[in-house]
Amino acid sequence: MKDVVAPLLDEKGFRARNRVFRRVSNGFEHVVSFQKSQNWSALYKGKFCINLYSHPLIDGYPGFPKLPLSSGEHLFSRRMAVNELQDQWWRIEKLYRSDVREIEGLLSRELDLWFSKTESVKAFSENCPSQELEFKQTASFLGVLPCWLAYAHAAIFATLKKDQCAMKMADAALLASGPQADLFDENVREFKQAIFDRLAQLNP
């Protein structure tokens, strides 16, 4: 499979380190990770899955990890699977040609589609969903809660110095946070204060 996967991902700009492939795309880090199961039950033993991760390369905002990112800190994620399955694992030792073709097809078709949502910081900000249903659908597609998608838009708007949009999306994140309201209340207050402080320095 390595002879198929490595050239395919190399052509798309990914660079390999062990079982992890990374690239940087206009302000986002993209990752394709071949994860070996750590679960020793009969269902998962000796199997692997393929995970996609994406994260805006910004920090300094409350709730966002500091750069460089560590494993598990990427905001957006998806596990690759066929036929709308939520979870798919392949055998490591008994990987048939049909499995390799299936994986090659997934990486050829689904990978570009999923990463297209975070192709660049500029495009991400310009394509901010305007309707609640569209927002929920985009959040589900990117594997994140709507409140975190809204907060990501707020942080990126702030990075691009679009302060009014940033404030609006921070409020939307708080409104969508539900059970995480306490966490987001603190994040949003710190976030807004940082913008106020920056504006005060620009307009003393």
Rank of each mutant, 00 (worst) to 15 (best):
A170I: 11
D182C: 05
H153L: 13
H55N: 07
I195W: 06
Q201L: 09
R15N: 08
A42N: 14
V82K: 12
I50P: 01
P65G: 01
D112S: 14
F76Q: 06
M80A: 02
E104N: 08
L174P: 08
A173F: 04
V144K: 11
K66L: 10
A200M: 02
K192E: 12
F115R: 01
C165K: 13
Y44L: 13
K168I: 14
A16K: 15
C49F: 03
L145Q: 13
R189A: 15
K161H: 14
Y44C: 03
L9H: 05
R78T: 04
I92W: 03
G63L: 03
D59V: 01
A16Q: 15
M1L: 10
G63V: 00
L9F: 06
Y53G: 00
S120E: 13
Q180Y: 13
T138I: 09
F135T: 03
E84V: 00
R91A: 11
F76L: 05
Y151N: 12
L9R: 07
W148T: 09
I50V: 10
H30G: 06
I156C: 06
G63E: 08
E11A: 15
H153A: 08
G13I: 03
Y151D: 08
K66R: 12
F196M: 08
K168Q: 15
L142R: 06
D3Y: 04
S77R: 13
A158K: 05
R101E: 08
A176N: 14
E93M: 14
L85W: 11
K36L: 14
H74T: 02
F76S: 06
E11L: 10
E104M: 02
F48Y: 09
S71T: 14
R97F: 10
P62R: 10
L95V: 04
E93Y: 12
F76C: 04
Y44T: 07
L52I: 02
L149T: 03
F34S: 03
Q201M: 07
K136G: 05
L95C: 04
L111Q: 04
S108N: 13
T138C: 11
G27T: 08
L145S: 12
A6Q: 06
L107P: 08
W40M: 12
S116A: 10
M169W: 12
A139L: 08
G72W: 05
R101P: 00
D59R: 05
R19H: 13
Y44G: 02
L145P: 09
L52P: 00
D10V: 03
V5K: 03
E93L: 15
I103L: 04
K2F: 04
A42V: 14
Y53C: 00
F21H: 12
Q88S: 04
P129H: 05
N26Q: 15
H153C: 07
K161W: 09
D87A: 02
R19P: 00
